[in-house]
Design a protein around this nucleic acid. Structure first.
Lengths: 190, 190
DNA sequence: TCTTGTTCCTAGCGCTGCTAGAAAGATCTG
DNA sequence: CAGATCTTTCTAGCAGCGCTAGGAACAAGA
C-alpha cells in the first residue's frame, strides 16, 4: 500500500515539474521554444517520460493553460472586489484582463489562442476556466438589462479578447489600447 | 530587352502559381498541410524555387493573406452597398464578415490570426487591407458620435474578430453566434 | 537468490523549413 | 556552328521537430 502511495506521489510531483518547466520555458522564450526535447532536458528525464504523463505536447499545453487560467481568475476577482461601483468593476476587470495578456502572453495564448482541446463553454470545462468566466459574468451582470447574461458576457469578453489579440499581433497600434478599451466600456456599461 | 521582359513575365506567372497553390492547399486541407515540399510538388518545381520568390513560408502566407483580403473587401463592400440604412449596413457588414470567416477559415487565419509580418495599421499596409478596413470604417461612421471614428471602428472590428475566432476555436458555442452578433450590433448601433 | 513486473532510456521513424553546391539549360561571342 | 558564360534549377543534405518501439535497468515479492 505505502509503496504504491509513494510511487503515485512521486509521479504527481514529476507531473507538476513538467508543467512548471513548460510554463517557465514558454513564458521566457515563447511556445515555439517549448519542444519535447528541451522540456525533457529541463526535467532531467528522457522524452518518452513526457508521454507517460501526457498524451502529447498539446496536452501539456492544455495543462499549463488550466493552471494559467486559475491565475487569471485570481486577478479578475481581485479587480472586481476592489471596485467601488459596477462601472468601476467592469473597468477594473477590463484592465486586469489586458494586463494579464500583456504580462503573460504565453499563458494567455495557451488559454485563449492556441488550438488546444480544452472543453470550454460546457459543464465539463475545468473549474479554473469556469471561475475566470464567472468573474466576467458577475462584472457584467449589473448591465445586462433585457439581454441574456451569458451571451452578453461572451460578447463583452470577445471584445476584450479581440482588442488584446489584434494588438498583440501588431494589427492594432499599441498606444491607443486604453482608449479602445474605454470605448468598449462605454458601449457595454451605459 | 525582350528576353528580359519575357523572363520577368514568366517569373511573375510562376509566383502567381505558387500563391494560388498555397491558397488552394490551405483552403482544402488547412495551413498545417501547406508544406514547402507539397507546395513545390503542386507547382511542379523543386523546393528551392519557392525561396527564389519568397523569403520563406511566412512570406508565402502573407502573400495569400493579402489576396484573401481583397476578396474580403469585396464581400464587405457588397454588403454595405446593398443595405437600405446605416443600421442595415452595419448588420450586413457583420454578417458578411462572419460568413467570410466561416466559409474561408484558412484565408481568415492568414489575414487575422496567424503570426505573419504584414504592416497593418500604417500607411504601408497593403491596399487590400486598407480597403477592407475602409469598408468597416464607412459602416461605422454614422454611429461615431463624439468618438474617434478610427478607434471606434477598431473596437467594433475587435468585437467581431473576437466573436469569430473564439467561436471557431471551440471556445464559444456555435449556435448562438448570431445572437451574440446582434448584441454587439445593439451596443454599437444605437 | 531468483523471478516477476515496472520504469525508463536508447535509438530511430518520418516529417519539417531551409540551403550549399553541382548540374543543366539558355544566351551571347568568335 | 562551336565554345564560353551566365542564369536557372535540382539533388542532396542539415538540424530540428513530435512521437514510439524494443530492450536495458531497476525495484519488489517469492
Amino acid at each position: 500500500m505505502s509503496i504504491q502511495a509513494r510511487r503515485e506521489r512521486e509521479r504527481a510531483e514529476r507531473e507538476r515539474l513538467i508543467i512548471e518547466a513548460a510554463r517557465e520555458l514558454a513564458e521566457t522564450e515563447g511556445w515555439e521554444a517549448v519542444t519535447t526535447r528541451r522540456l525533457a532536458e529541463r526535467v532531467e528525464y528522457s522524452q518518452p517520460v513526457l508521454y507517460s504523463h501526457f498524451k502529447g505536447k498539446d496536452a501539456i499545453m492544455a495543462a499549463v493553460a488550466v493552471e494559467g487560467c486559475a491565475d487569471l481568475a485570481v486577478d479578475l476577482r481581485a479587480a472586481r472586489l476592489a471596485a467601488g461601483s459596477p462601472e468601476e468593476a467592469l473597468a477594473g476587470i477590463a484592465d486586469a484582463y489586458s494586463s494579464f495578456a500583456e504580462r503573460r502572453p504565453a499563458l494567455y495564448d495557451a488559454i485563449f489562442s492556441q488550438r488546444v482541446d480544452l472543453p470550454f463553454a460546457t459543464p465539463e470545462a475545468p473549474p479554473a476556466l469556469q471561475a475566470a468566466f464567472g468573474e466576467l459574468l458577475e462584472a457584467v451582470r449589473p448591465f445586462a438589462g433585457d439581454d441574456d447574461l451569458g451571451l452578453l458576457t461572451e460578447t463583452w469578453w470577445s471584445g476584450l479578447h479581440g482588442l488584446v489579440t489584434l494588438m498583440r499581433d501588431g494589427r492594432l497600434p499599441r498606444e491607443a489600447h486604453s482608449r479602445r478599451v474605454a470605448i468598449l466600456l462605454n458601449r457595454f456599461a451605459h
